[in-house]
Design a binder for these strands. Sequence first.
DNA 1: CTGGCACAGAATGGATCCATCATCAAGAGC
DNA 2: GCTCTTGATGATGGATCCATTCTGTGCCAG
Lengths: 231, 231
Amino acid sequence: MSTPPSGPDPTAGPQSSVASQRIAAELREAILAGQIPPGTRLYQEEIAERLGASRLPVREALRILEAEGLTESQANRGARVPLRTMREVEVLYRMRERLEPLALHESLADLPDSTVDRLTEIQEQIEANDDVTGFVTLDREFHLLTYSACPIDTLLATVVTLWNSTQYYRRAFMLYRGQGERWIINAEHRLLLDAIRRRDRIDTERYLAGHIRRTRQELVRHPELFAPSAP
Amino acid sequence: MSTPPSGPDPTAGPQSSVASQRIAAELREAILAGQIPPGTRLYQEEIAERLGASRLPVREALRILEAEGLTESQANRGARVPLRTMREVEVLYRMRERLEPLALHESLADLPDSTVDRLTEIQEQIEANDDVTGFVTLDREFHLLTYSACPIDTLLATVVTLWNSTQYYRRAFMLYRGQGERWIINAEHRLLLDAIRRRDRIDTERYLAGHIRRTRQELVRHPELFAPSAP
DNA sequence: CTGGCACAGAATGGATCCATCATCAAGAGC
DNA sequence: GCTCTTGATGATGGATCCATTCTGTGCCAG
């Protein structure tokens, strides 16, 4: 469950010496940015041609992304970006409510003060920014950075996978209805940031769980953002 | 995050039409049975020759297993079965404590009565059996069967990955010190089974969380089963 | 005797070519 | 007119060959 030396780094840029990882990074970025929406069929040959490689590393890249929850594939039937139902996304959020507080707990002791300062900067950028796409990117960077000192690779990788799997719908919600939520998110982030600075394990877990829980409840109030339940 | 049509089935036998999946199934079985212990280097060529295929599907199989937590690989440095530290296994158990009750919760409503009967049979086999390897296999079958009706593939796959990642150490513990624990496990299983039959969501989650938690506490009392913390 | 460097062997990563399977459209039969 | 079958097309899966990178050993210098 690790591609670069120290776990899959979702913020890593698309420069890697190994082609399959470079391709995976390019596709990852495009999918997370919403440029390749759920349901899109991914053709090996097209990707290979566009990114200047043969089909083989593309196949490996698709396997890597599959492990990260960004694509899915069936034998002889190709790969696509998963279309998720509302119920599925809801349960993914419930998983996040349970796992991310644990990841933060495990990360908290080893989180250097410099990272806490960086978190504060990001939060200031979030508050200054009013572009939705920029917000989603910064929000992701903020939260994943709080987990960055977690020493357990599997836990971190699982959390990243859950973020990957829900991010598209999160952006869709923010574009559609989320502007009014901004002040709540900022308040929650400020409380969380303060608890992190105090290294308070109880408070960090509580604020974080509440933050995710509230987001889930907002999301499920908009079924129109999702694929129908019965495919 | 799915190899056969409906998610990765860890109990599926090694007969598959697609070679990479067949190879992954063979290796999965061998690793889970403890025949390939943690730390073992896996050579593509050797596996390819032994299982009658070329190296290419072996590479794909190793990627599949990597996603399931059964192998790890670094660029140009090959694949191996991960060696986990005690701290790592402890956190993996904490993840299980949080996720498996959720999986059971989501599975419970759709779990057919016939499956509950099958669970009872398995528990009777567990009680009649005194071979440790047989116990570990049956115990895995029992728990994973309780989750089998969970409609969310990602949740199920994550739970299976966590089982895969901890199973070796679980067996090592049972071989080493676990025989006296058998009656406690049986009592816990009976309570869980009864709650499942009653479709009691609260009790199932409580008994299951307690069961996993107690197992974790037993495991961490035996640091000698694990790799040292500082590699 | 120790440490660094260079070279040889081996294993992994990638490209190209071929076989197999799924999909879709057109036609025959009912 | 509808359905089932059959064939053509295109995409995926697999095998072989070549390039690249890592590892370990042996030699030489300090």
